[in-house]
Design a protein around this nucleic acid. Sequence first.
DNA 1: CGGTAAGTTGACACTAATCAACTTTCGTGG
DNA 2: CCACGAAAGTTGATTAGTGTCAACTTACCG
Lengths: 255, 255
Amino acid sequence: MNRLTTRLALRLERYAPLRVEDKQALENEALAIRRYAPRDNLAREGNPVERIFVIVEGFASRYKLLPDGRRQITAYMVPGDLCDTRTFALPFMDHSIAALSSVHAIALTPEAVHRWESLPGLALVLARNSLVHQSIAREWLVSIGHRTSFERLSHLFCELFERLNAVGLVHSSACEVPLTQTEIADTLGLSAVHVNRTLMELRRAGLLSFQSKQLIIHDYLKLQLVSGFHPRYLYVASPDEATARAVNEDSCGFF
Amino acid sequence: MNRLTTRLALRLERYAPLRVEDKQALENEALAIRRYAPRDNLAREGNPVERIFVIVEGFASRYKLLPDGRRQITAYMVPGDLCDTRTFALPFMDHSIAALSSVHAIALTPEAVHRWESLPGLALVLARNSLVHQSIAREWLVSIGHRTSFERLSHLFCELFERLNAVGLVHSSACEVPLTQTEIADTLGLSAVHVNRTLMELRRAGLLSFQSKQLIIHDYLKLQLVSGFHPRYLYVASPDEATARAVNEDSCGFF
DNA sequence: CGGTAAGTTGACACTAATCAACTTTCGTGG
DNA sequence: CCACGAAAGTTGATTAGTGTCAACTTACCG
């Protein structure tokens, strides 16, 4: 098994353990890997759905544009995230997907998806991936609908921290988050100016620093507290549960 | 085939045509129908997922509560809408579901879902239902993130109008929308007071009236215009396409 | 090294929240 | 069927939180 497959398997296993045959199925599609530069579109609103994507490296975003040029980012895709496998059941995209950083992604055909779905282990991973992303979208509605700018920022950073941690991309409270302040603004329904000011507040409060794409969380407990963040909605197994899973690799159980 | 099954089939066929065997499968679960009064919970955040629901009559909402008691409604479920069939792949609910009006819903077990998914026609309906609801959630993020209160209200009413029309619940520009102003406020991230004032504006502008749960749209074209509403994201087939589908009942094509 | 994108800061405007009082409608039991 | 209480809706006054505009600095890329 090559390096890429190993890494991808590790990231997908955040959802459920994979068996050898599942990993083999991953490897069979590894040739379909594509590279995208920041701002490249992986898919465009209105276009037919020909491929869906598995993010192996880098950040991507789902977004919609308003007639006046404003943009709403509706989701982040980080390594180990993928599109809903049922997307082929719709005739065209309702939104666009673009790379936020340099991105490596596997582009799956309907046939490849069918092969993956026929393996119980992978099918479970794909189902949970979709459900967790729906759960995240709901939490984002809560944030934009009801939280203050301060809470929104801190909540988003908590979420990214958890999600990146779940796929091994956090090291000693630091991780790479390749987002500009404008992109964060378009995510949280705030102006870029206000995001800037709120980030200052977060820094001054000693909660985190976020410079040149590096997010460092200085006081995670307090950050969770001020933002009302509870990681349940991300369905990340706790350390204990992760251990239990690792012990019994044959099980398909989750929690 | 009894009355209930016929009506449900009609509403599900907004996604794709159903064959006789699909409708038979619906009928087989009709015994699992339950009735809920307004405010009753169909499912609660944190609870294990034992049943998923198909709304046959009435309105339900998905919502999350904040620690201070504020509520964000993240989705409406109208007749013909159902929960994602993969929900069983997660150990607990990340949100709650409550009846907004008096509701008739079929409660499906994992086994029933499995039987439905094994029929290609029904499986397609279930897949599209999930994808359309994900698309709606994205559009709601756009609304809450970027639209003014006036645009949010009018956009929401356009959406409800289209969705109810797609399942035959609009008659001469009027439909029943059993929402209070407070519930609309909790949906759109506005205060109830501001929703009230904005509704006045909409009335005064001659666009619609909304009294005692009756929504009447007086100028749908203008309402779409002022709200930036485009029905694409709802994936409702246009009249022509619906006709084409009706002609060729055996096809599983969509658009 | 120059140009552009990203980030920073201040002044000001405005949308929508809050608080409070009041009216109307609805549901329910006497 | 009416009366009562509670929920829903309405309106005004005031305030808080963010958006907008503009100028400027810093960082990045070819």
